[in-house]
Amino acid sequence: MSLARADDGAALYYEVNGTGDDVLLLIAGQSNNHHWWDAPRQDFDARFRTVVFDHRGTGRSDKPETGYGTRGFAADVRAILDDMGVSEAHVYGTSMGGRVAQWFAADHPDRVRRLVLGCTSPGGAHGIERSAEVRRSLAQRDTRKARQALLELMYTPAWLATHPGPFTTIGDRDMPPHARRGHFTASKEHDGWDALAKITAPTLVVHGADDVFNPAANAPLIADRVPDARAHLIPSARHAYFEEFREVAGPLVLDFLTRTP
């Protein structure tokens, strides 16, 4: 358990686990802390030193009024690797974390060995937005119904029927309102289209085939934009494919990260 310092002085909480020589940095989704990775991280600890962290505004990291943007979050990633003394790492980002990973890989190509972009979007004019129906389901005034709608976007009914929680992927409850707004705006305003074309790391794009929270149609868009990237859609999976379909996603990503060139 350590604290890095961002460029603006904000404290960034991170944890390192695992026994491998190579580093795998895992980036969580919007308004979530490092617990997003509690389950899937276990698939990588035997092979890598895994690094998880709390985005600014979440968990044990500082919650400043400013600094909320996907490119700024990528600078926070750099600060954490600098604090560790790590010159390069594999990077796996999901959802908003995938947006952050796009910027990090584009801005620091010499620091990314292999890149995995999960359930994410290029944003901007080229990204495929969720439907109005999905947006309405999340904006319900009844908070219990809105929470249930979010769970059903993340997981299949079969999973929810046998997994009553607690859930680590539906937001950090302790975020102050300004930080929650900052995360929302960061995701909404992300436009990584030009950045994608600058990525040089070998790249795997993973998405749940039934994801409508961040529509699966974004996966081939990203894979076509990143040089030599490939996409893999996991049948029947929704947004949290990395947890519910861990028996598929874990080996898939591990094979990609450990493959010899």
Score class of each variant (00 low, 15 high):
H190Q: 08
F167H: 13
A223N: 10
V112T: 13
A105E: 09
C119V: 15
H190I: 10
L221S: 10
L24H: 01
R60A: 06
V51S: 02
P220E: 08
D22W: 01
T94R: 04
W193C: 03
R173G: 09
H232K: 14
V52G: 04
T143A: 15
A209S: 12
P166H: 06
Y155H: 14
G9K: 00
D191W: 02
V86N: 06
L3Y: 10
L24P: 08
R130D: 10
H178T: 08
G123M: 04
N17M: 01
K188I: 05
G118Y: 03
D224R: 14
G118S: 10
F73S: 01
H108P: 03
F184Q: 13
L257E: 06
A229H: 06
A231C: 07
T94V: 12
L26A: 12
G18T: 00
L254R: 14
L153M: 08
H183L: 06
T200H: 13
R71E: 03
H163S: 13
A46V: 00
S137F: 03
S87K: 07
S137M: 13
D45Y: 00
D191G: 10
V52P: 04
G208F: 13
V86E: 15
T185C: 00
L117K: 07
R114L: 06
L221K: 11
T203Q: 11
S131F: 01
R259D: 14
E15R: 11
K63R: 12
T70W: 05
P64M: 06
R173T: 14
L117F: 10
P202I: 01
A125H: 12
L138R: 00
H90C: 12
D191K: 10
F242N: 15
T168W: 13
S61L: 11
F53V: 11
V134P: 02
T50W: 00
G97A: 11
G208Q: 11
P177N: 03
A219R: 05
F48I: 02
V16L: 08
T169Q: 14
L257M: 06
W159C: 07
A249Q: 05
S95L: 09
T162Q: 15
D228Q: 05
P166V: 08
